Amino acid sequence: MDIQAEKLFLIEELVRTDDIKLIEKIKALLTNKSNPILGYNVKGELITRSQLVKQIEEAEARMDGGEFTSQEDLEKQSENW
């Protein structure tokens, strides 16, 4: 299929759909070129590059602040499961 046929197919499918989540995802894909979508969380919500970087920075800050559980502590806890 050539590019024009592909575009027409997408337009027709968009016109037919009532799925707002699908439309939001397509819109996000088309508008987030500088902040691309990298995946989805467990709720099916989009995760962009900037969101992922922010989550990593927050996790690193928690680790630097001592807010973590060591492998040894997890092993001790799992003995009681």
Rank of each mutant, 00 (worst) to 15 (best):
E75G: 03
R16D: 13
L74T: 11
I37K: 02
D2F: 02
Q4L: 15
V15M: 09
E79F: 00
Q4Y: 12
N41D: 14
A59Y: 05
T31S: 09
Q4C: 12
D18P: 05
L8I: 12
V53E: 01
L46N: 10
G44C: 09
L74G: 10
K54W: 10
Q55V: 11
K27Q: 02
K43W: 01
R62F: 10
L46C: 09
E72C: 00
L14D: 03
N41F: 07
Q4V: 15
N80F: 04
L10V: 13
D18W: 08
E57D: 08
E75D: 07
L38W: 05
K7C: 14
E45I: 06
Y40T: 10
T69P: 01
E60I: 15
S34M: 08
K21P: 00
R16F: 09
D64L: 11
A59W: 03
F68K: 05
L74I: 14
V53T: 04
M63H: 14
L10W: 14
L38E: 03
M1F: 11
E79Y: 02
L29G: 09
K21G: 00
A59P: 01
E13G: 05
Q55S: 07
V42G: 01
D2L: 03
Q71D: 07
R62I: 08
F9Q: 07
E12K: 10
